[in-house]
């Protein structure tokens, strides 16, 4: 699959979309970032993070530090869940 290139997501773009479209738009942008960190678990981690509020997800897309912290949290929850 060719990696898709998306323009940065803005709050106004999100506001114009339906709720399920909003999560999809965020997911399409989050996934490649998470995939770069954890290739094997990127799908699961992205799915977990999409349960977070959109406003916070937008901040994470713009802040690698915030994203990394949430990815780490998600990993720990995932490992506990699978244990």
């Amino acid at each position: 699959r060719e990696p898709a290139v998306y323009e940065p997501l803005s709050a106004s773009m999100l506001a114009a979309a339906l709720p399920h479209e909003q999560k999809q738009m965020i997911g399409e942008r989050l996934y490649p970032l998470i995939s770069a960190l954890h290739t094997q678990l990127a799908g699961k981690i992205t799915g977990m993070l999409l349960e977070i509020d959109n406003s916070e997800l937008l901040l994470m897309l713009e802040s690698p530090e915030s994203l990394n912290a949430k990815v780490q949290e998600a990993l720990e929850v995932l490992q506990e869940h699978q244990a």
Binding site: H20, Q24, E28, G43, G47, L50, E51
Partner: peptide, 22 residues
């Protein structure tokens, strides 16, 4: 376990299954 249904996995270009719960 081997059959873990949570979390719903996201795959690029595929509608996210977790959307059902929103």
């Amino acid at each position: 376990g081997s059959s873990v249904s949570w979390p719903p996995e996201f795959h690029p270009g595929v509608p996210w299954k977790g959307l059902q719960n929103i």
